[in-house]
């Protein structure tokens, strides 16, 4: 950063002082948020991670568990199933949601009649009550006489899928519901980011004779990179943590077909009162997401232009 470079060139004592002062200024920006964040979120989080090495039933008898909780993971069938299901869900949701929300944002950034209405409409599933969302989605995909299956029958499919009532189709149904619920949310972020692209860039490109695709490829896409980075990380993390939607739509069923890690964590903690083991599962989830996030950060350095 320029200021840092400048200080390096001046005499060493004042450089050190200035550097310290600079650091203090920086910390003063972060402090108000960090204080609240550290006390009310970070400390309990560290608690919960420590719990992974303890046995605790939520009332008394804390005892040291060592790696017992982690050994247990290897024998837990449901954990294995939930882990695979979580990956299934993430892989199904993240790219699709990103593509659709980007497409919608580009479309609704055009001067279209009624775009305010469309934007509000697309944001709606995100704010609507989850119960209504789950009911409506299940109704659309109602096996016997839902509109989707009626349509499929019209196309000549004699035995359309039984969607959320079938072990094989329950997860795709949930994934589609998730894309539908969250695309409006990420569309808003893209819309806001699109406002940050200087129009001179497009004007200059137009003078150079760039076509629509080239303008998108060489101006819009790179300029959206910070937003894309944010969305890819947030979407990945929240998808790994999916809970509410699955809870109301299928509650992990049929059987364990849509059981995911956080649902399993919740059941272990609040149905079986094994807080230590539940924390161990959360820890695994945390490590997976951490690794992916670090990889994404590395990639950010490569494709986000920090000017």
């Amino acid at each position: 950063m320029e200021t840092a470079e400048l200080t390096n060139n001046t005499s060493s004592i004042s450089a050190q002082q200035r550097k310290r002062k600079h650091n203090l200024t920086c910390y003063s920006f972060i402090l108000p948020n960090f204080l609240g964040f550290a006390i009310f979120t970070l400390i309990p989080m560290v608690f919960s991670l420590v719990l992974a090495f303890l046995h605790w039933d939520g009332a008394n008898k804390i005892s040291f568990a060592g790696l017992d909780n982690f050994k247990q993971l290897l024998e837990d069938d449901t954990f294995r199933i939930a882990l695979l299901n979580t990956f299934y869900y993430v892989i199904g949701t993240v790219p699709l949601t990103m593509l659709v929300s980007l497409g919608l944002a580009l479309l609704l950034n055009q001067p279209l009649v009624g775009r305010n209405f469309f934007r509000t409409a697309y944001f709606f599933p995100y704010v609507a009550s989850l119960v209504a969302v789950a009911v409506v989605w299940n109704m659309l995909f109602y096996p016997a006489a839902g509109p989707v299956n009626e349509f499929l029958r019209m196309l000549g499919v004699t035995e359309p899928p039984r969607w959320s009532a079938s072990v094989d189709w329950a997860m795709p149904t949930v994934i589609m519901a998730s894309v539908w619920r969250y695309m409006g949310y990420y569309m808003v972020i893209y819309l806001a980011a699109l406002q940050g692209i200087p129009s001179q860039l497009y004007e200059a490109a137009a003078l150079d004779g760039a076509n629509g695709w080239q303008r998108f490829r060489y101006i819009t896409l790179p300029m959206l990179a910070p937003a894309t980075f944010f969305i890819s990380i947030m979407l990945t993390i929240t998808s790994f943590k999916v809970f509410d939607l699955i809870m109301v739509m299928t509650n992990g069923g049929p059987g364990r077909a849509t059981n995911v890690l956080v649902l399993h964590t919740y059941n272990i903690a609040f149905r079986q009162f094994r807080f230590g083991y539940s924390s161990a599962i959360a820890m695994v989830l945390f490590l997976i997401v951490l690794i992916i996030t670090i990889v994404q950060f590395r990639m950010e350095d490569r494709w986000v232009d920090y000017q």
Partner: peptide, 10 residues
């Protein structure tokens, strides 16, 4: 009534 449909339709 069919169980799957009872569930899907809440």
């Amino acid at each position: 009534m069919d169980y799957g449909e009872l569930r899907a339709g809440s």
